[in-house]
Simulated assay, not measured.
Amino acid sequence: MKTPNISFEFFPPQSLDASFRLWETVRELAPLDPSFVSVTYGAGGTTRELTHDAVQTIHKHYGLNVAAHLTCVDASREDTLAIAKDYAKTGVTDIVALRGDPPKGAAGFVPHEDGFSSSVELIEALAETGDFNIRVGAYPDPHPESADLDANVAWLKRKVDAGANSAITQFFFEDDTFFRFRDKCEKAGIDVPIIPGILPIENWKGVRKFAERCGTEIPNWLNDAFEKAVRDGREDLLATALCSELCTDLIDGGVEDLHFYTLNNPALTRDVARALGITPRVVLQDVA
């Protein structure tokens, strides 16, 4: 089996304990030599400054290629592009361009009166600068706001036509979900890399709730397996085995890149990477 390129997603801390957890996660996973790492925005743009600080710190102190999430929520076009330009000045030229989730309690996304109305508009503006490698989101299961999977593919095509260089998918549970989506994208003329998003399941109850909210299909066998594993105290063991198997099946199907949603917890991601033959890069230092 060919060793894949890997990348990681982190989220910015909102407390002292969360800060320690983030930096411990980065410290543990950085030696696995990821091709890039990304840092998310909170719903409604609530972590904008925290995201900016985390991006700059990871880039400066760990020497990693950082892709900063940038959304259209609650900000003018001018302010959004100013954030992007500030990233570029400090050497951060990868952007994950997203529409973004509305603030908690909001009925749906409402554009800022002077802001971008969609991710496509944001991508077009970023592409016009010529400064960025633009990554976007993709949905291998029907998005809650889409009519069907074909609508997901059509929207991704619009983002690619606007200037996106690659796409990262929402997490999914079965390899056929990704391959079906990839085939549809190829038929639609989408020719940029589509990187599968991988979620090692730390807490099945929480993941199931999130999957239901974002439209990710939950196979009956998976729910049954985790309910039994939780009863037996083997949840982490099952999570590592299933995630490793999913990644192996994807690699066997021609996938070369995997993007892990770490949830700022390094253990499961590290264990899955080890199962795939990815080991920490050892840096030799001068010895007196």
Rank of each mutant, 00 (worst) to 15 (best):
T3V: 14
P4R: 08
N5D: 04
E9Y: 14
P13G: 09
L16H: 03
A18H: 09
S19T: 08
F20N: 15
T25H: 11
E28P: 00
L32G: 01
L32M: 14
L32S: 02
L32T: 10
P34A: 10
V37C: 14
G42C: 13
A43Q: 15
R48G: 08
G63A: 09
V66L: 12
A68K: 07
A68R: 09
V73T: 15
D86T: 10
V92S: 05
A97H: 02
G100M: 07
D101H: 08
D101M: 07
P103F: 06
A107R: 11
G108V: 07
F109P: 01
V110H: 05
E121T: 05
E124D: 13
E128T: 07
D131N: 09
F132P: 03
A138S: 04
P140C: 01
H143C: 10
A147C: 01
D148P: 14
D148Y: 13
D150I: 01
V153T: 06
W155G: 00
W155Q: 12
K159L: 10
D161C: 04
A164L: 09
N165M: 08
S166F: 02
I168L: 09
F173S: 02
F173Q: 03
D175R: 03
T177V: 11
F181Q: 04
C185H: 04
K187V: 07
A188S: 03
A188N: 01
D191S: 06
D191T: 11
G197C: 08
G197E: 08
L199P: 08
I201Q: 06
E202P: 00
V207H: 02
A211P: 03
R213L: 08
E217W: 00
N220Q: 12
A229L: 00
V230H: 01
R234E: 06
L237G: 00
L237K: 03
L250N: 09
D257V: 13
Y261C: 00
N264T: 08
N265W: 03
L268M: 14
L268G: 13
L268V: 11
V272P: 10
A273G: 04
A275Q: 14
A275E: 15
R281D: 02
V282S: 10
A288R: 05
A288W: 15
